[in-house]
Design a protein around this nucleic acid. Structure first.
Lengths: 257, 257
DNA sequence: AAGTGGTCTAGACCACGAT
DNA sequence: TCGTGGTCTAGACCACTTT
């Protein structure tokens, strides 16, 4: 199934081995979730040292193509069916049906959504967040931190910051903000939402993010920072979100005018 | 500057070394662009084999924190200033000033934009593209492929597909489509643009993408697929774009209603 | 117990960059 | 030339999973 090495090639042996495995996956000889040949098998097939084989497997893992499981083997990483985040996900009509954005999106894609590690505290936000909220450094905010799961797998951690003068003493300061989530509460408090600004970066996860999201190596994260504005133009919430990039496709509509 | 190993720790030695270096960078002891201690220096400092040091450096590179340069050393990766892609980047007013989207955005961020490797061909698009254009399999399209650079550094490759019945024989089929780019030409041809659908994924690059974009290891890519619709609701272009994720911050505005 | 990947050692030779 | 990272070998012991 795997070709032999080309001794005349300039390409490093471990890269050639990675190429062969990558092509076998692309061809379908190795399917999603299937086990790659063991290190011992590859050593024997190619007649190379273990270190060389491991370099090849390491490369595939850093590309997000394969994932090692200690004691079991190295497996073709399944490309999980993805959830789309439509750009109308914060539309008022969803809130009016009593669904928060994540829950609505997630159920629409046939997954069982859940939330855990929910904490609500009161604290001064990081400087860049305070700037976005147009608050002076050190001003108190209500901080809502939570982790979202699909079918029990963590896929997203989000931290929301809301000015304390708006949120303190309301349901927004409680773990369960009630139907429609915090945006529904904000509107009831007289802050009719006008629009959201969303900023997106993609990068490799920090060690901490890798742990909390149980990321395989070679999976980047989306880092979203979203600011919600009310109809008075006041920023009423900033949400800082880190998402496992292999679990999401973001989707937006842009006007032509 | 670097602490000693904790022999009692469960954490693998190479991870501890990576931790120390990461913290030194975070603290500012090692600044952007600065050289990390050489492998030989780290071997001596920690009293470990070269392989162990290399594992630590490998880890930092896969995280996008450092980048090795053959024969020179391993350096703290500078976080290059980023360009924002505003969600009005396809607004008609930009085209009317004679600027295509990339050029306008890039100049606004103080960079010297350029384009190279421009090719224009006629071919049947990949299946998923044909679907988006609502074309039957095998229908011809005009295929415009190009690479964008900032200050001479490649940051983005894009491939546009336009139905041949619209584009063939027009300036869209020529390397230089004229002022305002292909969108300006589409509108002159009677296809007034209504909106764009943009779909975003983030993942690690393929070997090919890594080469064309000259990506350092540990840098993911944005993969955008954008479909342009005219006011009749007909899809008139699909643009498939791969961008170096460390060179962009995407930015969108979402309505609340 | 056997098979798998995870970590680490101690060497070797090579290719690239600065001097 | 010398210091740097890139590649490769041949072993060792360990931890996890399966049988």
């Amino acid at each position: 199934m795997l070709p032999s090495l080309d001794p005349g090639s300039d390409r490093a042996v471990f890269r050639q081995i990675a190429d062969h495995l990558r092509e076998a996956i692309k061809r379908g000889d190795l399917r999603e979730g299937e086990k790659l040949p063991s290190e011992a098998a590859l050593m024997k097939h190619y007649g190379v040292a273990r270190g060389t084989v491991r370099q090849a497997l390491q490369l595939l893992q850093s590309e997000g193509v394969a994932a090692a499981e200690h004691g079991r083997g190295v497996f073709v990483r399944p490309r999980p069916p993805v959830r789309r985040l439509a750009s109308d996900r914060f539309a008022r009509r969803h809130r009016e049906r009593g669904q928060a954005a994540f829950m609505a999106e997630s159920e629409a894609s046939g997954r069982r959504p859940s939330v855990d590690m929910l904490t609500v505290t009161q604290a001064a936000p990081p400087l860049d967040i305070a700037e976005r909220l147009k608050l002076d450094e050190g001003t108190a905010t209500v901080v809502r931190r939570r982790r979202y799961l699909h079918d029990g797998h963590p896929v997203e951690v989000a931290t929301s910051y809301l000015p304390a003068d708006i949120a303190t003493g309301t349901k927004i300061g409680e773990p369960d903000p009630g139907p429609g989530g915090i945006y529904a509460r904000l509107e009831e408090l007289g802050h009719r939402l006008d629009h959201f600004d969303e900023q997106i970066e993609a990068r490799m996860p920090t060690a901490e993010e890798s742990r909390v999201l149980a990321l395989a190596s070679g999976v980047p994260v989306f880092h979203l920072i979203r600011t919600a504005y009310d109809t008075d133009g006041r920023p009423v919430e900033v949400c800082d979100t880190v998402m496992a990039a292999d679990s999401f496709v973001l989707s937006y509509t842009l006007p032509a005018s």
